[in-house]
Amino acid sequence: MAATYCMTFQVNCSIERKPYSLSHKFDDFKTLFSSVFKPVLRDQVQQVRPPMHVDVSRTIKKASVKILDAFVDSVFEFADQPLLPSQNNFSPVEELKEAVLITDIEGKIPNNFREGVYIRNGPNPLFGGLKVTKSVFGRSSHAWVEGEGMLHAVYFSKDSDHGNWKVVYNNSHVQTETFKLEKQRNKPSFLPALEGDSLAILSAYLLNLLRFGMVNKYISNTNIFKHSGKYYSVAENAVPQEIDICTLKTLGNWDVNGAWKRPFTSHPKLMEIDWFMKWIRD
């Protein structure tokens, strides 16, 4: 009996200890399994259903801009601004898709004429011309010097074998940030804010600032200058835009590597004494 008891005890002990031992090891195994596979499962779940990140401020801003755009579209009416007879020379022209060879030339190009590119910068408004707006606030309009900048370039080169002249013409808008914005919208978006009734100008200032973060467009239509081997288009109200002189392509804004935070003068002077560019305010 004692032996049986002892055996029973041992068996009982072994039976009682065995579940305990297995349970303890199983818990350890679960911990190890979880530590190894949970990150993998979590990554797989995230790949299947990625977490949603909502930028509340950006969403509110986009909604506010849409509301303001709807208000402008319903309250303001855009119309073409008529040109005076003396301003007909400033009417907009179409932008070329590629350079064209000039074959019909009146007169003769002098033999000692310098080869190179002769370039002009001037206003060439989008959407058919300058605009005027009418609203409950009154009337506002552009000044005749406004309008997106367009470069007109004439390239002169001479055939070295026969001395014949080759003349090529090209033009292109200066693609400022506001030019690209209105081009993308495919309609006039900035309200004229230079001439007109006081209340209309004030409302144009406020609405342009709220919708675009600026009052007026970056027109870049006044001058083109060379600095350190590069060429730039410029106006008084913004930083210059770098231009590829061969293709007239806009390469981007030039802010002197982030050091310049305000508009440039449109008429910098090159001093022949030291050949340094002088930023002289006219």
Rank of each mutant, 00 (worst) to 15 (best):
M1D: 10
A2L: 13
T4Q: 07
T8H: 05
V11K: 14
N12I: 09
R17Q: 13
P19G: 04
Y20F: 14
Y20S: 11
S21R: 07
L22Y: 13
D27E: 13
L32S: 12
S35Q: 14
S35N: 14
V36D: 11
V36S: 13
F37T: 02
V40L: 07
D43A: 15
Q44E: 10
V45S: 13
V48F: 15
P50R: 06
P51C: 06
H53G: 04
H53I: 09
S57Y: 09
R58V: 14
T59N: 10
T59D: 11
K62H: 15
I67P: 00
I67A: 05
I67H: 01
A70F: 02
V72G: 01
D73T: 08
V75Y: 06
F76E: 01
E77T: 15
L83F: 09
P85G: 07
S86M: 14
Q87P: 07
N88R: 12
N89W: 15
F90R: 15
S91E: 14
E94M: 09
K97P: 04
V100A: 11
T103V: 09
T103Y: 06
G107T: 03
I109M: 08
N112T: 02
R114S: 13
Y118F: 11
G122Y: 00
P123D: 04
N124W: 00
N124V: 00
G128W: 04
G128E: 04
G129W: 03
L130F: 01
V132F: 06
T133Q: 04
S135Y: 02
F137S: 03
S140M: 01
A143H: 14
W144Y: 15
V154P: 01
Y155C: 09
K158R: 03
N164H: 15
K166Y: 05
V167D: 04
H173D: 02
V174S: 02
F179A: 00
L181K: 05
E182R: 04
K187L: 08
S189R: 00
D197M: 05
S198G: 07
L199Y: 08
I201M: 10
I201Q: 00
L202N: 13
A204I: 04
A204R: 00
Y205H: 15
L210N: 03
R211M: 05
G213I: 10
N216R: 06
K217M: 04
Y218I: 08
Y218V: 03
I219E: 02
S220P: 00
N221H: 07
N221E: 08
N221G: 08
N223M: 04
H227F: 13
K230A: 10
S233T: 07
A235S: 15
E242N: 02
E242C: 05
T247N: 06
W254P: 00
G258R: 09
A259L: 13
S266C: 10
E272C: 09
F276W: 08
K278Y: 14
K278Q: 14
R281L: 12
R281V: 12
D282R: 06
